[in-house]
Computed example of a mutant assay.
Amino acid sequence: MATLHFTKGHGTGNDFVLFADPAGEVDLTEDQVAAICDRHFGVGANGILRAVLSRNIAEGAAALAEDADAEWFMDYRNADGSVAEMCGNGIRVFSRFLIDNALARLEPGETLPIGTRSGVRDVQRNAAGFQADLGRWRLSAGEPLVRAKELPVARPGLGITVGNPHVVVALASVEELESADLAYSPVIEPEQPDGANVEFVVAAEPMVKDGVGHIRMRVHERGSGETLSCGTGAVAAALATRYWAGAGAPNQWKVDVPGGTVGVRMFPTEDGEHVSLSGPAELVFVGELEV
């Protein structure tokens, strides 16, 4: 039995257990991850973030090939122990963890590259806390239907990939949004090969004010269930709403989630349009576990 020194953190209520494993020596099983994330018998979290040096994890080779400065790799596991490609709230909290533990530095105006399974993601400080460039996004093929408990009929969804897969569903009212019972997994038809996070979205009134779009969202994350926030989900929801709104829709959005508010911005780059996510990152407490 070994002692795991950990930190609990969250980004708008999307919470994580974080620990440093520079040498890549701690290989938690799915059952161990699930036990740690259990809210009754463990620490409680939506997932686990392991900080490992990119050179010491197999997936880190691709990160270092993409950016030699991507010293740290964010090894993310969902609450059920499954492996995930990326986490938008998680990468902000991960960056805060590295900085507060003197594992990395990030001065105003500087960029901190972080390796993930969906590529290197650049993090900067901003007024909201941290901003992460989540890279290029794309629409997914197909026209999925989504069924959710307490929503009377199946709703059309829009598939969007932002390093991990999402299906976004527009609802007609706040009442519909609140009535959906996301304790049960929404059913996507046809079934997605790798699963998907499902976001339910309602536009604010007005939807656009002073050039900034505004939406409200709830989410069911694959491997974690309903969470208070999903960073990549907020990005997917904003992208989907802009797509539905058509020409003239803004490239900057405010997304309200049950745990707070995050910002989304779309911007051009040499390799195509990128999208960024900004918001707070909080570290709550430290502790030890016998695993």
Rank of each mutant, 00 (worst) to 15 (best):
residue 144 P to H: 02
residue 54 S to L: 10
residue 253 W to I: 07
residue 14 N to R: 11
residue 67 D to L: 01
residue 211 G to L: 02
residue 178 E to V: 03
residue 229 S to K: 04
residue 6 F to P: 10
residue 47 G to N: 04
residue 76 Y to K: 01
residue 229 S to W: 11
residue 254 K to Q: 15
residue 262 V to Q: 00
residue 113 P to Y: 04
residue 263 G to D: 14
residue 11 G to M: 09
residue 130 F to H: 06
residue 181 D to N: 12
residue 51 A to N: 00
residue 35 A to Y: 11
residue 158 L to P: 02
residue 202 V to M: 02
residue 106 L to S: 04
residue 291 V to E: 01
residue 285 F to V: 08
residue 284 V to G: 04
residue 23 A to P: 02
residue 245 A to R: 09
residue 224 S to N: 02
residue 177 L to V: 06
residue 83 V to D: 10
residue 170 A to H: 10
residue 87 C to N: 06
residue 104 A to E: 07
residue 181 D to T: 06
residue 118 S to G: 11
residue 254 K to D: 08
residue 108 P to T: 01
residue 150 E to W: 09
residue 40 H to Q: 14
residue 153 V to G: 10
residue 219 V to D: 06
residue 278 S to P: 10
residue 13 G to P: 12
residue 11 G to S: 11
residue 82 S to M: 10
residue 136 R to H: 13
residue 1 M to W: 15
residue 183 A to C: 11
residue 235 V to D: 08
residue 195 G to H: 12
residue 231 G to I: 09
residue 90 G to A: 05
residue 147 R to E: 15
residue 83 V to Q: 14
residue 189 E to R: 00
residue 291 V to K: 08
residue 284 V to S: 10
residue 58 A to P: 02
residue 277 L to F: 08
residue 216 R to V: 12
residue 84 A to P: 11
residue 16 F to H: 02
residue 89 N to D: 06
residue 13 G to R: 09
residue 102 A to M: 14
residue 203 A to D: 13
residue 121 R to L: 15
residue 183 A to P: 07
residue 132 A to P: 00
residue 52 V to F: 02
residue 223 G to I: 07
residue 261 T to M: 14
residue 277 L to E: 05
residue 205 E to M: 08
residue 183 A to L: 13
residue 152 P to G: 11
residue 32 Q to I: 05
residue 127 A to Q: 07
residue 68 A to R: 14
residue 262 V to G: 08
residue 2 A to E: 12
residue 91 I to W: 10
residue 5 H to L: 04
residue 153 V to D: 14
residue 144 P to V: 05
residue 167 V to Q: 01
residue 131 Q to R: 12
residue 101 N to G: 15
residue 230 C to W: 00
